[in-house]
Write a protein that binds this DNA or RNA. Structure first.
Length: 591
RNA sequence: GCGCCCAUAGCUCAACUGGAUAGAGCGUCGGUCUACGGAACCGAAGGUUGCAAGUUCGAGCCUUGCUGGGCGCACCA
């Protein structure tokens, strides 16, 4: 069901009734209308005539001409014409564009319409492992998940963000053993996670050579599983200190979670989940393990089954994910769940989703809150890897993953250097603030401006570049607008400005036409969870603003141009700020 | 072996999900040049969309087969 802005829905409705009149009985329900990619053709276009003509064996151009003739759009369009193989092109009246701009400026949502069917959406993202530092491998999930949550909230879905941290697993045997026998308290105080990594590395290396160490680690793991107080205490401490470190990074990134229910939270329910799946005939024993087979699935039947309990009785990733799904479906009543994890987990989630279908379909299941409840829509939001200049997954020179904290430090340091060179007049405090926003914004934007399912090459020079599709370019456009307002002594953003009575200059109209597509673009992002569509939009908006800025003086213009241009500037700034905000990127007033 | 993803200008990426003459940035060449912030703007050159068929009014996008690359496939997460 397509959502449309006022313009698009008006045109679509008009086309629909014209089509009914000209060609009764046609099968098309909602004529599609899209913005023209090329201004030569007009502002909006529709291909309905070609679709209906093809279905009814008619001549497309003739049908288009009679549909266009039956349209009553004189007040909205200056011109409607048939072109090419049968397109109907619409040219909006400048006066209507001005009216739409005024409307958008007065709208607290700036033209972002509410979702047609608001849902409760759980966004599962970031998910670092405790006792390990967050690194580049976490940035895409974190940025994407946070951005998608922001987009969903912007169209008034109810959003629950959940950080499914990896705080359980076999590695804790070694960690606890290491913690008890060789902890460096000073190091723990300085950088607890780094110390945990050291402990794990040492014990792990030693146990590959030393049977005794291996045995001690195994005993610690058993003690933890058995809930022995001493072991649990150490485990808790490791988790708490790790989460506190993560929280520092999230604060720095402006990322927020409603919940942080890690793997351990679901631990107590795993035996019960496995038992239920066996009872319902969904899981079965195979070679001593408990597995779910997908024999009826044309794709999954050839892959290995999904194991939910090992031969030794231990549970797995899949088990936890099923328990987690149950909690979200039954307790949270989620309508939809987004799993923002990398593409390598595709098969895993296919299996989880297929198992969930079976589970939800089984009478007496505990997955859903009630018999008439439906399984949430489950979507795996896949993304590619971050590559270094050598086109291999990015690493430090020593081969370790780059720590997120180091990455952000470097981003800010590089941004600061550029700002110092470009604008030495700025106060030290303003420079630091700008460096933070630009540095972190640049890293986020570089990630979010590209199609998520592709790998991308991480390149400092490109992401901090001042030209091209980058955060600095967009923020610069914003800063220039704010500077106009400072010069003119009209400081606050979003103040009440008189509606534009005229938009006559080409650059004004081009900018205005882009502005009124903002809400549509936000919805398009959510259709396929692709924030790069909005990034592309913001970049185009900025280039149109730059062109406008070159050719249309604002403060020096005479009325009524001055007022109209001020409003265009103000609305552009607000759309840039709001749009960047959806991507999790801040703006600054000076740079 | 089976499955998934990818291949677009020299490089890094787009292309509103089947629409019109495939667009940007970088790099190259050339313009604007006392500017409401030049961290900008304008222009030129650059393409058989990996190859080959097919589907239809119309294909970078859908189908099939190749080639080349990445990833995943039973006791890790």
């Amino acid at each position: 069901m397509p959502r449309m802005t006022d313009v698009r829905s008006l045109l679509s409705q008009a086309l629909s009734s014209a089509l009914d009149a000209v060609c009764p009985g046609h099968a098309l329900t909602v004529p599609s209308v899209s913005a023209c990619h090329d201004a030569r053709y007009g502002d909006y276009q529709s291909n309905v005539a070609m679709l209906v003509a093809a279905a009814g064996n008619l001549a497309p151009r003739e049908l288009a001409a009679s549909v266009a003739g039956a349209l009553r759009l004189e007040d909205l369009c200056a011109k409607v014409e048939v072109a090419g193989p049968g397109f109907i092109n619409f040219h909006l009246r400048p006066s209507r564009i001005a009216a739409l701009i005024a409307e958008m400026a007065a709208d607290p949502h700036n033209g972002i319409a509410s979702a047609a069917n608001p849902r409760r959406i759980v966004v599962d993202f970031s998910s670092p492992n405790t006792a390990k530092a967050m690194h580049v491998g976490h940035i895409r999930s974190t940025f994407l998940g946070d951005a998608l949550a922001r987009f969903a909230r912007a169209v008034r879905h109810e959003v629950i963000t959940d950080n499914h941290v990896g705080d359980w697993g076999a590695q804790f045997g070694m960690l606890i053993h290491g913690y008890n026998t060789r902890l460096d308290r000073e190091a723990e105080k300085r950088d607890p996670v780094a110390e945990f990594e050291r402990l794990y590395r040492e014990v792990s290396q030693e146990s590959s050579r030393n049977e005794e160490t291996r045995e001690k680690a195994r005993r610690e793991l058993a003690a933890l599983h058995a809930g022995e107080a001493e072991s649990v205490e150490v485990w808790k401490k490791i988790a708490e200190l790790s989460l506190a470190e993560f929280e520092k990074l999230y604060r720095r990134l402006g990322v927020r979670f409603d919940h942080c229910l890690g793997e351990s939270f679901y631990n107590p329910s795993l035996p019960e989940v496995v038992a239920e799946l066996r009872r319902l005939g969904i899981a079965e024993e195979s070679e001593g393990a408990i597995c779910v087979f997908f024999r009826e699935d044309p794709v999954l039947k050839d892959a290995a089954p999904m194991m939910i309990r090992k031969k030794d009785g231990a549970f797995l990733y899949a088990t936890t994910d099923l328990a987690t799904l149950r909690h979200r479906a039954r307790e949270w009543r989620a309508d939809e769940i987004l799993y923002v994890t990398d593409a390598r987990q595709k098969l895993h989630f296919q299996q989880i989703f297929a198992a969930a279908e079976k589970w939800a379909g089984a009478p007496g299941n505990s997955l859903l809150a009630s018999a008439d409840a439906r399984l949430p829509r489950l979507r795996h939001i896949v993304f590619g890897s971050v590559l270094g200049a050598d086109k291999k997954p990015i690493k430090t020179r020593s081969g370790d993953p780059i720590k997120l904290a180091d990455l952000l430090d470097e981003a800010e340091a590089r941004a600061l250097k550029i700002i110092e060179k470009k604008n030495p007049a700025l106060s030290a405090e303003a420079r630091r603030a700008a460096a933070r926003v630009l540095g972190i914004g640049a890293v986020k934007y570089a990630d979010l401006c590209q199609n998520r399912n592709l790998d991308y090459v991480f390149d400092w020079n490109k992401l901090l570049a001042l030209q091209g599709n980058t955060a600095p370019y967009l923020i610069y456009a914003y800063v220039r607008i704010r500077s106009i307002f400072r010069q003119g002594g009209i400081a606050p953003l979003g103040q009440t400005l008189p509606p534009p009575s005229v938009l006559s200059h080409d650059a004004e109209l081009a900018l205005a036409k882009k502005l009124i597509q903002f809400g549509d673009t936000v919805h398009a992002v959510l259709d396929d969870c692709r924030p790069h569509l909005l990034a592309g939009y913001l970049y185009e908006l900025s280039t149109r603003f730059s062109r406008f800025y070159e050719t249309c003086p604002v403060l020096k213009a005479a009325e009524p141009d001055r007022g109209a241009r001020l409003l265009l500037c103000d609305l552009t700034a607000r759309v840039l700020q709001r749009g960047l905000g959806l991507l999790g990127i801040e703006t600054i007033e000076e740079m």
